[in-house]
């Protein structure tokens, strides 16, 4: 009875976990039975061993610290610049026209292709990673914030004017709240691009971090260690996503469901 209730409440989670478990068992068996090469395909047990050794030598903590540092700095800069520029472009047509070409050119350009150039200009290491992360991230925040500002209803702005609101009141009390849903959609896209930016940056122009480790160990055919990094990135990504969803749910309690 108690179990049945507990099961019903967590059905989604439990069945999901079961699916993953079956996949892991299948993977392990296929490798053990010799259908797949353990060196290239790795296996759950090998990954567990690799995890233990990476944990003991401190690589996981060190890489996580580097990853989160680069992600946080790159993303935060992109958020501040993106939201400010997006609002300025949305509110003022002159700013929009002047900044538009830059935004769209960066948006359309394969940002990753700038890595070699940025390495020449900035050098090897975190600064370059952060720069590319910034470039990859801020454009989707700018574009969506601007669209959000345009979505603010003129009638709401009129309300503020009627009650004597000044332009700054209109921005703070109408434009920002009205643009929040689209702005956050842009932030979400920006976050996933920031993730990619950091990992690719570490692969190309750094000597530390998960991206670097993935490239390095793949070169040595240590696939289990590669998987350790990938799995940790998945975990970090999932946690950030859950936090983001929780923030959104709080912010948008006012929306009709």
């Amino acid at each position: 009875m108690i179990f049945e209730g507990a099961y019903k409440r967590n059905e989604r989670l439990l069945l999901g976990a079961l699916g993953l478990l079956i996949f892991a068992v299948f993977w392990e068996s296929v490798v053990r039975l010799g259908y797949l090469n353990p060196i290239t395909a790795s296996s759950p047990s090998r990954i567990a061993q690799a995890f233990a050794s990476q944990w003991h030598n401190g690589a996981i903590l060190k890489n996580s610290r580097i990853f989160l540092f680069e992600l946080t700095v790159g993303f935060t800069l992109a958020f501040i610049v993106g939201v400010t520029l997006g609002i300025a472009m949305g509110v003022n047509r002159l700013v929009e026209y002047a900044a538009d070409p830059f935004v769209w050119l960066i948006y359309a350009s394969p940002t990753i292709a700038f890595y070699p150039l940025l390495m020449i200009w900035i050098g090897f290491g975190s600064a370059t990673v952060i720069t590319v992360t910034f470039l990859l991230t801020f454009v989707s925040i700018v574009v969506n914030t601007m669209a959000g500002v345009h979505a603010a209803e003129p009638q709401m702005i009129r309300v503020l004017k009627v009650f004597g609101g000044k332009p700054i009141d209109i921005i703070l009390k109408v434009i920002i709240p009205a643009s929040l849903p689209l702005m956050l959609a842009g932030v979400r896209i920006g976050l996933s691009r920031a993730f990619l930016g950091v990992i690719l940056g570490e692969m190309f122009s750094s000597n530390a971090g998960f991206g670097y480790d993935i490239a390095y160990y793949a070169g040595q055919l240590q696939t289990a260690t590669v998987f350790v990094s990938i799995i940790i990135l998945i975990v970090i990504g999932t946690i950030i996503n859950l936090l983001f969803t929780a923030v959104e749910a709080r912010l948008f309690a006012w929306k009709a469901r």
Partner: peptide
């Protein structure tokens, strides 16, 4: 415009 002449709108115009 100013609060000495407050307006009530046909479509209510509340901030959602």
């Amino acid at each position: 415009p100013g609060p000495d002449r407050a307006l009530v709108f046909q479509d209510f115009a509340l901030l959602p």
